[in-house]
Simulated scan of single mutants.
Amino acid sequence: MKENIKELKILLVEDDPISNFITKSKLNKVGAENVFETENGQSAITFLEGESPDLIFLDINMPIMDGFEFLERCRQNRIWSLIPVVILTSSVRPCDKENALEYSNVIGFLEKPLNQTKIESIFLKYTSFKTNYM
């Protein structure tokens, strides 16, 4: 298991370049060096066909393929369904959170923007998920 955040390969799935910039900056600040970006669920699927990230930060509302469609595609793939996902969204709808947490690999549901406290919480959950599922 990769204990150090520096070694983790992180995928951001977000259609807003400003949100990606902020999230990537926050992750870089805590030591994450391998942060990749895709602009929607479909481009994230293409990324997964060639790469295997350790952690995915996923927006819900995106064009082409939204976050829930992406999660459903991951659920259908045995390997992708083991990649921990953090929903990072502007949605505050309780039904979105309920739906997201029905996926076994969703380890968190956070409202944008990411901050130090949220990052620490996610990496504790990430470690627990990896310990229990790997």
Score class of each variant (00 low, 15 high):
residue 105 N to H: 15
residue 129 F to V: 02
residue 41 G to W: 07
residue 47 F to K: 06
residue 36 F to H: 14
residue 89 T to I: 11
residue 46 T to I: 14
residue 98 E to A: 09
residue 56 I to L: 02
residue 41 G to D: 08
residue 64 I to P: 10
residue 41 G to H: 08
residue 72 E to I: 05
residue 10 I to Y: 02
residue 119 I to F: 07
residue 57 F to E: 08
residue 45 I to D: 02
residue 47 F to Y: 14
residue 78 R to M: 03
residue 109 F to T: 07
residue 62 M to Q: 02
residue 38 T to E: 14
residue 51 E to D: 10
residue 70 F to E: 05
residue 116 Q to N: 03
residue 64 I to C: 10
residue 116 Q to D: 11
residue 125 K to M: 14
residue 83 I to A: 06
residue 42 Q to V: 00
residue 134 M to P: 00
residue 9 K to W: 06
residue 17 P to W: 01
residue 57 F to I: 09
residue 104 S to M: 13
residue 134 M to Q: 10
residue 96 D to W: 12
residue 110 L to V: 08
residue 37 E to S: 08
residue 134 M to I: 09
residue 89 T to S: 00
residue 15 D to S: 02
residue 124 L to I: 11
residue 77 N to G: 04
residue 91 S to Q: 13
residue 14 E to V: 12
residue 107 I to E: 06
residue 20 N to L: 09
residue 45 I to L: 15
residue 6 K to F: 06
residue 60 I to S: 01
residue 124 L to P: 01
residue 122 I to P: 04
residue 18 I to T: 12
residue 92 V to C: 10
residue 121 S to R: 03
residue 20 N to H: 04
residue 13 V to N: 04
residue 30 V to M: 01
residue 69 E to D: 13
residue 18 I to P: 11
residue 25 S to V: 07
residue 78 R to E: 15
residue 52 S to E: 15
residue 104 S to V: 11
residue 108 G to F: 10
residue 110 L to W: 04
residue 66 D to T: 05
residue 70 F to S: 00
residue 13 V to M: 04
residue 28 N to L: 08
residue 54 D to T: 02
residue 55 L to P: 10
residue 38 T to D: 05
residue 101 L to C: 10
residue 133 Y to D: 02
residue 90 S to W: 00
residue 64 I to W: 09
residue 18 I to W: 08
residue 66 D to Q: 03
residue 131 T to P: 00
residue 60 I to R: 06
residue 97 K to V: 02
residue 118 K to S: 03
residue 88 L to E: 09
residue 55 L to E: 07
residue 109 F to A: 07
residue 131 T to H: 13
residue 81 S to E: 09
residue 6 K to D: 09
residue 117 T to E: 15
residue 64 I to S: 12
residue 132 N to F: 13
residue 133 Y to M: 12
residue 134 M to G: 06
residue 128 S to C: 09
residue 89 T to M: 05
residue 86 V to L: 01
residue 75 R to H: 07
residue 110 L to K: 09
residue 80 W to I: 03
residue 130 K to Y: 08
residue 125 K to T: 09
residue 33 E to N: 04
residue 74 C to F: 01
residue 110 L to R: 10
residue 131 T to S: 13
residue 58 L to M: 12
residue 105 N to R: 13
residue 119 I to T: 03
residue 114 L to H: 07
residue 133 Y to F: 08
residue 17 P to I: 01
residue 51 E to P: 12
residue 47 F to P: 08
residue 110 L to Y: 11
residue 72 E to T: 12
residue 69 E to S: 14
residue 98 E to R: 15
residue 24 K to A: 04
residue 69 E to H: 05
residue 45 I to Q: 08
residue 7 E to W: 00
residue 19 S to K: 10
residue 16 D to I: 11
residue 80 W to A: 00
residue 117 T to K: 15
residue 29 K to Q: 14
residue 63 P to Y: 13
residue 20 N to K: 10
residue 122 I to S: 02
residue 130 K to C: 07
